Amino acid sequence: MKKLVLSLAVLCALLLSTGAPAQVVTVYTSASFAPLMLDDGRGMYPDLIAYLNQRKPGKLTFRLRYMPRKRLQVKLEDGSIDGIVIGMMPEWFDDVEQKKYLWSAPFATDGYVLASLAAKPVSPDAPASLVGASVGVTHGYAYPRIDAWLSASRMVRSEGPSDEKNLEKLLLGRVDCVIVAESMAHYFVRTHGMSSRLHLAPLASPPTERRMLAPRSQAATFDQIAPILRKLKDDPAWQRIAASYR
């Protein structure tokens, strides 16, 4: 009998030593454009998810999933989202004081540029030339740090489904200029060999900081990844990854 009890105790110890299975955490993104998300499955966001999975914080496993922006915002607001969100900033969710949601340290920074044809450049420093010019913007997208300038410029908005589609409209001569994320513009120019065709003028605004957002119901998960994200700026491995998309 004692041997049976001992055997059962050893078996229980072995089962407990294997630990609980890894918890799968869904990471949502509303981005569908380069260099954040590429058609071949690569991109800065998939690479960051792979980076987290290599480190397995708290035995968590992360998977990236796309969700349209409006649906994502609704699920955040009604508390029904079952994961965390990548690549957001507090200004986009009326949470500048970071009280509604949990926010990580920035893992990347970005800005905006005004892209135009090199043969017909449009400059944000020449206000008179902007009046009446058609400017490509992304449908449903807010530009919280340059909206005031955009309204004052008296340009005519032409909405498109994405930054990349707006750049294509520019190349076809369907708009005079495009407001586009700096990272996307430089990646587009580099990968399509457009350095001689496009003129990129930086727009004066504070940098866009890409962060992880977590609803407070996901505090346990957030606490596992926040220290890792906070150290990314000092990690040469991550900096090499991020540099490959500039």
Score class of each variant (00 low, 15 high):
Tyr141Pro: 03
Ala142Gly: 10
Ala142Asp: 14
Ala142Val: 12
Ala142Tyr: 06
Ala142Glu: 11
Ala142Pro: 00
Ala142Ile: 13
Tyr143Lys: 09
Tyr143Asn: 08
Tyr143Gln: 06
Pro144Lys: 04
Pro144Asp: 05
Arg145Trp: 11
Arg145Gln: 11
Arg145Asp: 15
Ile146Leu: 15
Ile146Thr: 12
Ile146Trp: 01
Ile146Lys: 06
Asp147Arg: 04
Asp147Lys: 05
Ala148Ile: 07
Ala148Pro: 00
Trp149Thr: 07
Trp149Glu: 10
Leu150Pro: 00
Leu150Ser: 00
Leu150Asn: 00
Ser151Asn: 08
Ser151Met: 08
Ser151Thr: 11
Ala152Tyr: 10
Arg154Cys: 07
Arg154Thr: 12
Arg154Gly: 13
Arg154Lys: 14
Met155Ile: 08
Val156Ile: 12
Val156Met: 09
Val156Asn: 08
Val156Asp: 01
Val156His: 07
Val156Ala: 12
Arg157Lys: 13
Arg157Pro: 03
Arg157Ser: 09
Arg157Ile: 07
Ser158Cys: 06
Ser158Gln: 14
Ser158Arg: 15
Ser158Gly: 00
Glu159His: 05
Glu159Asp: 12
Glu159Met: 10
Gly160Arg: 08
Gly160Val: 07
Pro161Glu: 05
Pro161His: 02
Pro161Leu: 06
Ser162Asn: 11
Ser162Trp: 09
Ser162Tyr: 08
Ser162Ala: 14
Ser162Met: 06
Ser162Ile: 09
Asp163Cys: 10
Glu164Val: 15
Glu164Tyr: 13
Lys165Asp: 02
Lys165Glu: 00
Lys165Trp: 03
Leu167Lys: 00
Leu167Glu: 02
Leu167Gln: 07
Leu167Phe: 08
Glu168Asn: 09
Glu168Lys: 11
Glu168His: 09
Lys169Asp: 11
Lys169Pro: 00
Lys169His: 11
Leu170Lys: 08
Leu170Met: 03
Leu170Asp: 09
Leu170Ile: 06
Leu170Gln: 06
Leu171Trp: 03
Leu171Asp: 06
Leu172Tyr: 04
Leu172Arg: 14
Leu172His: 04
Leu172Ile: 02
Gly173Asp: 03
Gly173Ile: 07
Gly173Asn: 05
Gly173Ser: 06
Arg174Trp: 01
Arg174Cys: 01
Val175Ala: 08
Val175Asn: 03
Asp176Lys: 09
Asp176Asn: 15
Cys177Asp: 06
Cys177Arg: 04
Cys177Ala: 15
Cys177Asn: 10
Cys177Pro: 03
Cys177Val: 05
Val178Asn: 02
Val178Trp: 05
Val178Tyr: 03
Val178Ser: 04
Ile179Pro: 01
Ile179Ala: 02
Ile179Trp: 01
Ile179Leu: 09
Ile179Val: 15
Ile179Gly: 01
Val180Ala: 09
Ala181Phe: 13
Ala181Trp: 10
Ala181Glu: 14
Ala181Pro: 01
Ala181Tyr: 11
Ala181Leu: 15
Ala181Gly: 13
Glu182Lys: 12
Glu182Asp: 14
Ser183Gln: 10
Ser183Ile: 13
Ser183Glu: 03
Ser183Val: 13
Met184His: 15
Met184Trp: 13
Met184Lys: 11
Ala185Ser: 02
Ala185Tyr: 01
Ala185Pro: 02
Ala185Asn: 02
His186Thr: 13
His186Arg: 14
Tyr187Gly: 01
Tyr187Trp: 15
Phe188Asn: 09
Phe188Ala: 14
Phe188Pro: 00
Phe188Lys: 11
